[in-house]
């Protein structure tokens, strides 16, 4: 196909070479600029949202004393704006979700890409993508009605709406994204890498663990970042199943009690605050903190990717 195109290009070259060339470059100039501009548009959007959060959230620092903000009590009606319990709530749910999504997601991706026979692959891949397309509100609703009562009976808890329920559900929501991207990455590793390993006598698992996975590392980590990112940003499902009690979650035991995440706090309370009030600004301040946390996670992860990618390339090239 590409060769055909290239041939037709050479036929269509105009004898009036200078005229042709200048027109081509003029058009190219514009399209190239447009592509470049859209490449940088991501920065514009991130900056726009950051600016918006700063505008709405920063006044909090002037209105609420710092010691109040870092206290452990969130009770806005009586002016207690301690965001620490919300941060710990978000952390415990997100870390739990990542612990579910990363092994499960990468495991499923490896199974689909490396181990499953072809017919199984044809069934599994669309099914996982279907799961990824399911609206989180539907999953959250099923989480309340089916999953949390089951978990309550199974673990013998006073309530099924706990941090654990939220972690498992969010992990489930993140898995399809991780699988889909990671499987694509594993799939693009050239067959010759695997054949080389087999020729050296490596078993299937040794090949996967020491050759294929390191070679696909950057793509696998992109999948993990997108999946965990979706888990961090997920609002509705979390609000429905975590119970929403703003309690400080420090020990492992709080996994089995209700917590309240930052996103759920914003979603639950934003509808009822007066625009421009202290409470309103504090909710946006929470959004700002969340933004900075996900920024830090992303920068750290991409630093890891870049180091390990260089190492993998050194080994495999």
């Amino acid at each position: 196909m590409s060769l055909n195109w290239a041939l037709s290009l050479s036929y269509s070259i105009n004898p009036d070479y200078t005229y042709m060339k200048s027109e081509l470059t003029w058009q190219e100039f514009i399209i190239t600029r447009a592509i470049k501009a859209s490449g940088y548009s991501a920065i514009v959007f991130v900056a726009l949202i950051f600016f918006f959060l700063l505008r709405e959230g920063l006044p909090t620092l002037g209105e609420v004393s710092f010691s109040n903000l870092v206290s452990t009590r969130w009770y806005p009606i009586e002016d207690y704006f301690g965001i620490v319990p919300l941060i710990t709530g978000s952390l415990i749910v997100t870390i739990g979700a990542a612990l579910v999504a990363i092994p499960f997601g990468i495991g499923t991706a490896i199974y689909i890409a490396e181990i499953a026979p072809r017919w199984m692959r044809e069934i599994l891949k669309p099914l996982v993508e279907l799961l990824g397309g399911l609206p989180s509100v539907v999953l959250g609703f099923l989480g309340i009605l089916v999953f949390s009562p089951w978990l309550r009976v199974f673990l013998d808890l006073p309530t099924g709406l706990t941090a654990l329920t939220g972690s498992l559900l969010l992990g489930g929501i993140a898995v399809p994204t991780v699988v889909s991207v990671a499987e694509d990455a594993l799939d693009t590793v050239p067959r010759s890498y695997r054949e080389g390993a087999w020729a050296l006598g490596a078993t299937k698992w040794q090949t996967i663990w020491r050759v294929t996975l390191p070679a696909a590392r950057s793509g696998v980590l992109t999948g993990v970042m997108l999946g965990v990112g979706r888990a961090i940003g997920e609002t509705m499902a979390v609000m429905m199943v975590t119970g929403n009690a703003p309690v400080l979650a420090l020990s492992l035991g709080s996994l089995f009690s209700p917590v309240r995440t930052m996103t759920a706090t914003i979603a639950a309370e934003m509808g009822e605050v007066a625009s421009g009030s202290v409470h309103y600004h504090t909710l946006f301040f929470i959004g700002l903190v969340l933004f900075l946390i996900s920024l830090a996670v992303n920068v750290a992860a991409s630093a890891v990717v870049f180091r390990s990618k260089k190492r993998a390339e050194r080994i495999l090239s």
Binding site: A42, V46, T222, M225, I232, S294, S302
Partner: peptide, 17 residues
């Protein structure tokens, strides 16, 4: 290496925001 993480931040911003 700068643009990709920035793009992925967009995916991690809470939908409520």
């Amino acid at each position: 290496s700068t643009l990709k993480p920035i793009l992925e931040i967009l995916a991690g911003i809470p939908t409520i925001v």
